[in-house]
C-alpha cells in the first residue's frame, strides 16, 4: 500500500523547501480572490501549469488526482452557466482551478515527512497553552502506523465473515473491527507507558 502521493524528482519545484511551497499556496489563495479579471486569472492558471511542466511529474499520477477534482469543476461550471451566468462561472472555475493546481503541485512534489516537519514546527507555540507538541506528533505518527494494521484487520474480518455468509452485512464487519481496535488501544497505551515515554 502506497501511503503517499509524493512523486520523487529533482526539479526546482521538488527542491524548494516545503515552507516556501506552503507560503506560495496561501499567497495564490489570496491573489485569486483579489481579482475578477478572467485574463489575470488565466495568466495565474497558466503559470501554475508552467510549474507543473517544470516539475516534470508523471502524467498518470497528476491525472489520477486531478480528474475527480476537475470533474466536479465541470459540473460546477455547467451549474453556473445554467443558473447564474457563464461569465461568473468562468471566473470561479479559473479561481478554483488555480488553487487546486497549486495544492496538487505542493502535494505531488513534497514528501509527507517534510510537510509533517513544517506542521510540527508550526505547532510548537501550542506549548504556551499547556498543550504538549510531542503528544500531537505522537498521535500523527501512531495514526500513520495504524492505517496498514487496521487495513489488515479489516481484510481478515471480511474474509472470516464472507466464509460465514455474512459478506454483505456491514455490521458484521464494522462491529468486530471496532472491538478489536478498542482492545488494541489498551494494549498500545500500556506498551507506550511501559516504555517510559514521558508525555
Amino acid at each position: 500500500m502506497n501511503l503517499s502521493l509524493y512523486q520523487p524528482g529533482t526539479s526546482p519545484v521538488h527542491r524548494l523547501h516545503a515552507v516556501w511551497k506552503l507560503a506560495g499556496l496561501f499567497a495564490a489563495g489570496i491573489a485569486v480572490l483579489l481579482t475578477e479579471s478572467p485574463l489575470l486569472l488565466a495568466i495565474g492558471l497558466a503559470s501554475v501549469l508552467a510549474c507543473f511542466m517544470l516539475a516534470r511529474l508523471p502524467l498518470g499520477a497528476v491525472l489520477r488526482q486531478a480528474l475527480p477534482l476537475f470533474a466536479v469543476l465541470a459540473v460546477f461550471f455547467a451549474a453556473h452557466a445554467i443558473f447564474t451566468s457563464p461569465e461568473l462561472g468562468t471566473i470561479l472555475v479559473l479561481r478554483f482551478a488555480t488553487i487546486i493546481g497549486c495544492g496538487l503541485l505542493l502535494t505531488l512534489t513534497t514528501k509527507v515527512s517534510d510537510m509533517m516537519a513544517v506542521l510540527e514546527r508550526a505547532l510548537r507555540p501550542l506549548a504556551l497553552f499547556g498543550i504538549n507538541p510531542a503528544k500531537i506528533s505522537l498521535v500523527f505518527a501512531l495514526t500513520i502506523r495504524f492505517i496498514p494494521v487496521l487495513a489488515d484487520t479489516w481484510m481478515s474480518v471480511r474474509a472470516a465473515q464472507q466464509a460465514r455468509g455474512l459478506g454483505g452485512n456491514p455490521l458484521a464487519l464494522l462491529v468486530p473491527v471496532t472491538i478489536q481496535t478498542l482492545r488494541r488501544a489498551d494494549q498500545i497505551a500500556e506498551a507506550i507507558e511501559a516504555r517510559g515515554v514521558e508525555l
Partner: peptide, 11 residues
C-alpha cells in the same frame, strides 16, 4: 485514493 492540499480548495 484522493488527498493533498488540493481537496480542501474544491467546490
Amino acid at each position: 485514493g484522493r488527498g493533498g492540499a488540493a481537496v480542501f480548495a474544491g467546490v
